[in-house]
Amino acid sequence: MPTNALDVSDLTVAYKEKPVLWDIDLTVPPAVLLAVIGPNGAGKTTLIKSILGLIPTVAGSVRIYGRPYKEQRKQVAYVPQRGTVDWDFPTSVLDVVTMGLYGTLGWLKRPGKKEKKLAMEALEMVAMQDYAHRQISQLSGGQQQRVFLARALVQQAEIYFMDEPFQGVDAMTEKAILRLLKDLRSAGKTVIVVHHDLQTVPEYFDWVTLLNTRLVANGPMEEVFTEANLEKAYGGRFMQLKATARALP
C-alpha cells in the first residue's frame, strides 16, 4: 500500500471556549489537487493551521507521508492568506521569496548567491521576475499572491497547503495560478487548497474535502462533490447557492 500524503485522525481543535473542528479523520493520497470547501467559519483555515501546528489541538494526530509532521517539515510548504502580513513591511519581493529557504538554511546562516538564484527561478515560475527588486507594498493583490506562491515553490516541498490563493485575483492570474498548481500535481506533489468558488471546483480540482466544523465528506471529485453532500455542508445556505448546481457534474 502506498503511503498517504496526509493522514489526519481524530483531530479536534478549539479556540478558547469554542470547539471549531470535531473529530476530523482525513486521508489524502499523493499527487492530488484537493479543494477544501465549506461555508464561512466552517474551520477551513483552522484545519490547515492546526495541521501545520500553528494552533494547539485538543486531540488527534497528523502524519505527512507516513511520519509525524515534526519530522517532515521540510516536505511541507505553506501559503497563508494574503491578508495575514503587513504589505508595507520594508522588504523586497526577492527577499520575501528568499524567506522560503530559511527553513533549509537553519540558524544564523545568511542567504547567499545560491539562495538568491533559487528565489529568482521561483519568481520566474510565477512570471514575477521583473518585480524582484520592487518593494512589496507596490504590488497588486494578484501579484502579492504570486509572490507568496513563489515563496512556497522555493521550498521544494512534497505537499503544499494554500489558504485561498485565488482570493481577489483577476481571471488571468487565476488561470496562471491554476496552471502552476496542475504542474505541481503532475510532478507528483500534493496540493491542498482552501477554495471558495463552488462553480470552479469540478473544473480545477480532482479531490474534495467538504467541511463544516466536522468532516462532511472527503474523496475523489466525482464521488464527493454531490448535491446531497453540498446540502449537508452548506445547510440552508445551499438553497441560495442552488444556482451553482448547474455547474455540478
Binding site: D10, T12, A14, E17, P19, W22, D23, D25, V58, A59
Partner: peptide, 21 residues
C-alpha cells in the same frame, strides 16, 4: 477552571463521537 472542565468535556464528546462514528 472552565478550561479544565472544557478539556474533560471535549474529551468526553470526542470519545462519544468517535465511538458513534
Amino acid at each position: 477552571k472552565r478550561r479544565v472542565e472544557q478539556r474533560w468535556n471535549f474529551a468526553l464528546v470526542t470519545l462519544a463521537i468517535h465511538l458513534w462514528h
